[in-house]
Nucleic acid binder design. Sequence first.
DNA 1: CAGTGGTCTAGACCACACT
DNA 2: GTGTGGTCTAGACCACTGC
Lengths: 261, 261
Amino acid sequence: MSSIPPSTADSTPGPGAGLPAPAFSPLYQQIKGLILQSLQAGEWKPGEAIPSEMDLAARFRVSQGTVRKAIDELAAENLLLRRQGKGTFVSTHAEQQVQYRFLRLMPDRGDAATEGPAERRIIDCRSTRANAEVARALGLRTGESVIQVRRVLSFHGQPTILEDLWLPGAAFKGLTAVQMSDYPGPTYAMLELEYGVRMVRADEKIRAVLPDEEQAMLLQVTPQTPLLSVARTSYTYNDVPMELRRGLYRTDSHHYRNTLG
Amino acid sequence: MSSIPPSTADSTPGPGAGLPAPAFSPLYQQIKGLILQSLQAGEWKPGEAIPSEMDLAARFRVSQGTVRKAIDELAAENLLLRRQGKGTFVSTHAEQQVQYRFLRLMPDRGDAATEGPAERRIIDCRSTRANAEVARALGLRTGESVIQVRRVLSFHGQPTILEDLWLPGAAFKGLTAVQMSDYPGPTYAMLELEYGVRMVRADEKIRAVLPDEEQAMLLQVTPQTPLLSVARTSYTYNDVPMELRRGLYRTDSHHYRNTLG
DNA sequence: CAGTGGTCTAGACCACACT
DNA sequence: GTGTGGTCTAGACCACTGC
């Protein structure tokens, strides 16, 4: 861009244009936004390589360094994955060795890797209508269609996690219990492959609670057993909420692990 | 560094030297390590400005861009704070508006800012000897001197957090209950100002538990009330553990908030 | 105004992966 | 060897701060 001013095909003028921009943002942020748009639009699918830095630099009429900085930030946010000598790839839950994307429950002895995969049992899976709480969390209106799933995850035969999931019906039309239980990998990988919805971020609210009778029965504990209640909202690109999940975790042989920077 | 090869005063040869390095690391990582050393050595105190990028570049005989990348990483780790037009500053707990460094407990309504500071009551503060568990967490030998503190934090008059702290006696000699309760700001700020120990990172293990009788009394709950048990190990520079903290959180009007990237 | 960090560029070379 | 991302440099200019 030595002589040609940047015309990056978006509405906001670049800083090189020298015009009074109402909302100034650095060039690399604009490039980042453009790459993000392509990701959301599905121009490059999860697992695929995006064009090389040089190609993107030519496409956006900026230097490689500017593209690099944009990609750096997207890689830091786990949306892209850089592999030296091979290229830059769209992050994916599939073909990924991590067993759990957001689950922070760890066995007291050993780690998630040594423990092996959980056994999953679907208790319930049905289409229903969003109540006020679910609707608010998912950005829907009360009464809109949602898919509700209840399941139990067990480690070494011991029920450890009871989860209730709510998914917006519009985005996950036709999701069945068979599909949930048949898919061998992480649930988020299944949602990504089957419905093209990639979860990017999640918020959790954690409390200590006592289970009701049904919950206690499903987790094979007494109603006096304290459990971790984890309410998670998962978001896809652009902070659009796509899942509400309420988990009850037994913490007698596991614990919730967190690192604070 | 157009003609002069980098001699950055450390033992590992720079990449520009062209020698077979046994443990190759990029120049900017070496610079980062040197800055980190100066931070640990106290060459620049918390709150102070470090030399400008140009000065550091001259000092280390590298380009400004290389220093910039090293500082970028340190800033991302919250060890340094960049302020455009002013300089780069050593992070500090003091003179910082955040009330809590690591506490993730939020009121169900509003946020930490609206709630105001907690009332702190020191139950106990004494010098004792590390048992096996404390010694392991703090990297000490069993029987070494530790300072133990027990205190209750209340919000709006309601006891909400019961904390037990263990600090290595060698580093915090002379810490008293008066000092703990008199200091108006966050405890970590006090430890930083009075003892020059800056907590940089922390790990937490979370469970749901029931309190024993004494704990229940101090938190003014029944022994059947489920509570969050948070075991935190805090580290200073170089991942040296400097505090073990076991907290019991009431989660009837508060919750533990977490964000998963 | 000078000094600081922030952005952007262009070019060189290195490390890695595939073919 | 070719192409990818990774590092390093040098220089220009912008934006913010404070004198």
